[in-house]
Design a binder for these strands. Structure first.
Lengths: 125, 125
DNA sequence: CCTGGACTTGACGTCGGTGTCAAGACCTAC
DNA sequence: GTAGGTCTTGACACCGACGTCAAGTCCAGG
C-alpha cells in the first residue's frame, strides 16, 4: 500500500508518516516510481507509535518499541529497553499525578477560602 | 526600582518581565532616561503571575488575577473573574488527574503482564 | 576619558508534532 | 491531450514562554 492508504488505516496524516520516517522510525521501501510502499507490518508499527503517543509518550520514547517490533517480536513491549521505558513513564506518571493532586488541593482550598469569606472590594471585573 | 532588581526579587528574568509588559500584564512607568521604574506593588503583580504560572496556569489565564490586584484588591483572587478561572482550572485538573490515573493503570497492567509471562523472543535490544 | 554594568529595542532561536503550501512527477480515465 | 487524484521533496507556520544575541544609550567610578 502507499502512504495515503496507510495514513488512513492508521488514522493519521501522510505528513506524520513522513516525519516518522525522517526520525528513523518508519523506513519505507520504494516503488520504481519513487513512491513509498508499505505493508501490514508497517501498519502495526504506526499503530504502536500512535497508541504510545496518545498516552503521552514522546515520539523518541517510542523508538525502543518500534525497534522491538521490527526485530520480529509480536509485541513492541517485550524487549528490555521497552520495559525500561515503561518503568520510567510509570514513575513520571506517579510524579505527575502527585503534583496535580497537590495543586488541586491547594486550589480547592483557595477557592473555598475566597468564596466563604468574600472580602469587601472595589473590583471591577 | 529598575527591571534587573525586580527580576531578581521575583526570581525571574528581565526578559520575562518585558514579555509580561508586552502582554499588557505589567505596565511600567518610565524614568526620564527611558528606564522602566517599578515599586512594591509591581513586585506583588509579578509574584502573583509567577506563582500561578508555576502551578500550570497559562500566562493569559493570570490576567484576571493581575487586573484584580491592580484594581486595588489586596489579593488577586477575590474578583469573580479570578474565581471563574479557579473553577475552570480545577475542572481541568480533575480531568487531567483522571486521565493520568487511567493511563497509569493501563501502563502498570501492561508492565505486569509483560514481566510475569515473558515471551520467547529474538529481540536484540 | 575610558571602562563596564545595567538598561533600551528588535529580532531570531527553541521545542515537538504536525498543518499547509509550492512546484513538480506520476498515473488513470475520459 | 487533458483533467484530476496521489505521490514526491522542500520549506515555512504554529503554539508559549521565554533565551539569547546585536547594537546602541545611560550612568557611575577611577
Amino acid at each position: 500500500m502507499r502512504i495515503g492508504e496507510l495514513a488512513q488505516l492508521a488514522g493519521t496524516s501522510t505528513r506524520s508518516l513522513r516525519y516518522y520516517e525522517a526520525q528513523g522510525l518508519l523506513p519505507a521501501r520504494r516503488a520504481p516510481n519513487g513512491h513509498r510502499e508499505y505493508d501490514e507490518s508497517d501498519l502495526r508499527l504506526v499503530q504502536e507509535i500512535r497508541s504510545l503517543l496518545e498516552i503521552g509518550f514522546a515520539l523518541e520514547e517510542t523508538r525502543p518499541f518500534v525497534e522491538c517490533l521490527r526485530a520480529g517480536n509480536r509485541a513492541g513491549d517485550v524487549c528490555p529497553a521497552s520495559i525500561e521505558v515503561y518503568r520510567r513513564k510509570l514513575a513520571e506518571l506517579d510524579k505527575g499525578i502527585t503534583r496535580l493532586n497537590e495543586i488541586r488541593s491547594r486550589l480547592a482550598a483557595q477557592l473555598a477560602a475566597v468564596q466563604e469569606r468574600p472580602h469587601p472590594h472595589q473590583c471591577e471585573h
